[in-house]
Design a protein around this nucleic acid. Structure first.
Lengths: 229, 229
DNA sequence: CTCTCGCATGTTGTATACAAAATGCAAGTA
DNA sequence: TACTTGCATTTTGTATACAACATGCGAGAG
């Protein structure tokens, strides 16, 4: 019998620990800059230091931690420049995803995307930010999946996780929010027309716009911290 | 005194081991598919299993190893599809690098690049493949560095390492070699003109051409293995 | 009073011992 | 002969002990 090869992939202890830590970082429980004490964390996660250290290595490779020799690991804290760099790469990756997706998308895929777009627009109309973000992310994820390139998807996810660690609750100015929704509509259009180049350009521009928004949010947060008094 | 903060970065044992393994893999000493016995390797590298396992995690994150729970690590072996995916992403990254580089390149940078181009053309004239490859790689590396985006550079290097593990001795057909050199000349031109878009297109096309070459080489090697008798 | 040096304490780095899982082989059965 | 089953051996996974290094504090000199 064949066809049932390589099914399981039971997660190992280091992987499980890494997954747990990833969540803690992205949820903000372990904030940027936090130092990670091995003994303390290993007790908290209920594993010994050995698998925990392997988990550290994995997260460091993902860019969520930085490890300093003999001084342990700490949660990465991104500078303005880091964010800009990450978004630049992100834009290129999303652009590629769009280009590839346009060449492979089926009518069934388009239906799903239109459904998500609809959901997103409703959330926009109701000013329901959480639902909006969920639908928004689902759309981007799906376009990426459509590209059918695991390496691309992996890079995309990794970069995304790094940026999510920032936890910018960008409380979205009306005009920008409106524009983002409009951009999404155009993206679906380009995809329907199988116009890869146009979709690429739209996505690149979309990500660049988001960068500007995020940077402004970071500035605001800076102001709150430094000039608040 | 300030300005001398964070200079050192003494390499830790796991990092050193990872670096060593990386070399062994890329040089082909550890061929694709090879299983890595922890005890044997730890003796060979003169470290214990603990740091070696951390090295494994790092290399796995780079995509040079795959780790199967309870079954150890083995050197990745790329399928045709994997190669195509890697090159697709590579093209996007190089394209981005070109675009950014064109916006930041100085006249001094251009002089260096023209020097490398000259070196490459001479190697081409002399049919000196090793020198050609070295100059070729130097040019691409430099364009990437010019982009001034560490995240981009890191992704680029990582993907490159993965592909180098293939060790395709593409014995370069004349026509393709000529064309590659010509493409490089155009790239320097676009860079001189600070034409980012053109440079991006050239680089994307350049990488796609290389993909075709590599795939053909892989096919040939396949033929040698399967149909050689 | 300030700065430096040295020690005490805590934290990370590595090796190793032990546990758990997988692998290969041989004997037994259909 | 082909296939299964169980055991011996090998290999990986985890915990822990010990060593090396970093950090912070206090005493003493300038």
């Amino acid at each position: 019998m064949d066809g049932m090869t390589l099914p399981i992939a039971r997660s190992s202890l280091p992987e499980a620990a890494a997954e747990r830590l990833r969540t803690l970082i992205i949820e903000g429980e372990l904030p940027p800059g936090a130092r990670l004490n091995e003994r303390e964390l290993s007790e908290r996660l209920g594993v010994s230091r050995t698998p925990l250290r392997e988990a550290f290595r994995m997260l460091a490779a993902d860019g969520l931690l930085v490890q300093l020799p003999n001084r342990g690991a700490q949660v990465v804290s991104l500078s303005r420049e880091d964010v800009r760099h990450a978004f630049e790469v992100m834009a290129a990756l999303e652009g590629l995803a769009g280009e590839l997706a346009a060449a492979r998308v089926t009518d069934a895929d388009l239906e799903v995307l239109r459904g998500l777009q609809h959901e997103m627009e409703q959330a926009h109309a109701c000013r329901d930010l959480p639902t909006y973000y969920r639908a928004n992310r689902a759309i981007h994820d799906r376009i990426n999946a459509l590209a059918g390139n695991p390496i691309l998807t992996h890079s995309f996810r990794t970069l995304n996780a790094r940026l999510h660690a920032l936890r910018f609750r960008s409380n979205l100015v009306r005009t920008k929010w409106d524009r983002a929704v409009e951009e999404h509509r155009e993206m679906i259009e380009a995809l329907s027309a199988r116009d890869g180049e146009r979709l690429r350009n739209l996505l690149v521009e979309h990500v660049r716009t988001k960068l500007r928004t995020v940077l402004e949010t970071m500035d605001d947060q800076m102001k709150c911290v430094t000039g608040g008094k």
